[in-house]
Amino acid sequence: KGEKITIPSKSTSEPRFRLSPDAGERQWVAPGNKEFGAGDKIKKPPKQGGKGQGKDASDSGDAEDAFQFTLTQEEFLDIFFEDLELPNLVKRTLKETKATAYRRAGITVAGSPTNINLVRTMRNAHGRRLALKRPSTREMNELKERLFALERIAEPSEAEIAEKMALVEKLQAMEARRRWAPFIDPLDVRYNAYEPTPVPTTAAVMFCLMDVSGSMGEREKDLAKRFYMLLYLFLKRRYERVDVVF
């Protein structure tokens, strides 16, 4: 969620150096001069005493609008906490506190069924079927269709009978080959391997203490609340989980 930030136009102007129109000497050529010659001295024009309206307000529609842009919360916090870091003591303590997290560590041949790698398993099974020349389902369906066509013939010839017997023997051989070369073999199965890795603990507790004596007025309490809010936002950028204790 972003918020719109408006900057006045006068705040966007940059300082620049320019020659003063009321001092110094200049030389230039004015084309079309009919009154003066070389060496003539000309008085400077008198100063104008009128009051202009400035560039922010103009009747001709040339006024400059304020610069406006949208800034998200993350962008604002990046700018606001740009130069702030945790103390070295806190960083050192954070590094010494370790937790265990499981991360991917390649592929293994044994593991839990929930960690099975389907892509690698199917790739291994496909390569094994190609190497063993396992008959495909499409080839067997084509032979079965031809066999059914021959069986529908009422009076087959000797050649058709011989072809029918050859198809039956071929289908039996293909079925036997498919049985000892299954679609997926246990040797094809691969699992995703995970190994425990020590990682720094990213949790913190923020203690908020406030003086409740008479010296704490409404202004001081409001400043303390603002400080706690900024501190909490800063810690949220360094820790995954922050518990607040009042």
Rank of each mutant, 00 (worst) to 15 (best):
residue 5 I to H: 08
residue 9 S to G: 14
residue 12 T to Q: 13
residue 14 E to L: 14
residue 16 R to D: 02
residue 21 P to A: 09
residue 22 D to M: 10
residue 22 D to A: 09
residue 23 A to I: 12
residue 24 G to E: 03
residue 27 Q to N: 04
residue 27 Q to F: 11
residue 29 V to Q: 00
residue 32 G to Y: 02
residue 36 F to H: 15
residue 39 G to H: 06
residue 43 K to R: 00
residue 45 P to N: 11
residue 46 P to I: 15
residue 47 K to P: 04
residue 56 D to I: 14
residue 60 S to M: 07
residue 60 S to P: 00
residue 60 S to Y: 06
residue 60 S to N: 05
residue 61 G to T: 05
residue 70 T to Q: 00
residue 73 Q to P: 03
residue 75 E to C: 07
residue 77 L to A: 07
residue 79 I to H: 12
residue 80 F to I: 05
residue 80 F to K: 04
residue 88 N to D: 15
residue 91 K to G: 06
residue 94 L to S: 13
residue 96 E to H: 05
residue 98 K to G: 06
residue 101 A to M: 12
residue 102 Y to H: 12
residue 106 G to V: 04
residue 107 I to L: 08
residue 108 T to V: 14
residue 109 V to I: 13
residue 110 A to W: 02
residue 114 T to S: 10
residue 117 N to A: 07
residue 122 M to K: 06
residue 125 A to I: 08
residue 126 H to T: 07
residue 127 G to S: 12
residue 130 L to M: 14
residue 132 L to Y: 07
residue 133 K to M: 07
residue 137 T to I: 11
residue 140 M to D: 00
residue 142 E to A: 14
residue 145 E to F: 08
residue 147 L to P: 01
residue 149 A to T: 13
residue 150 L to R: 01
residue 152 R to N: 13
residue 152 R to F: 02
residue 153 I to C: 03
residue 161 I to W: 00
residue 161 I to L: 11
residue 161 I to G: 00
residue 162 A to I: 00
residue 167 L to D: 03
residue 173 A to Q: 08
residue 175 E to V: 15
residue 178 R to D: 01
residue 179 R to A: 04
residue 180 W to Q: 05
residue 180 W to L: 09
residue 182 P to N: 08
residue 182 P to R: 04
residue 186 P to R: 09
residue 188 D to H: 01
residue 191 Y to H: 03
residue 194 Y to C: 07
residue 196 P to F: 02
residue 200 P to S: 09
residue 202 T to W: 06
residue 205 V to M: 07
residue 211 D to Y: 14
residue 211 D to R: 09
residue 214 G to R: 09
residue 215 S to D: 03
residue 216 M to P: 01
residue 217 G to W: 02
residue 218 E to T: 13
residue 221 K to P: 00
residue 227 F to Y: 01
residue 228 Y to L: 06
residue 230 L to F: 11
residue 230 L to V: 10
residue 232 Y to R: 02
residue 233 L to Q: 08
residue 235 L to T: 03
residue 237 R to V: 06
residue 240 E to W: 04
residue 242 V to A: 07
residue 244 V to S: 01
residue 246 F to C: 11
residue 246 F to G: 10
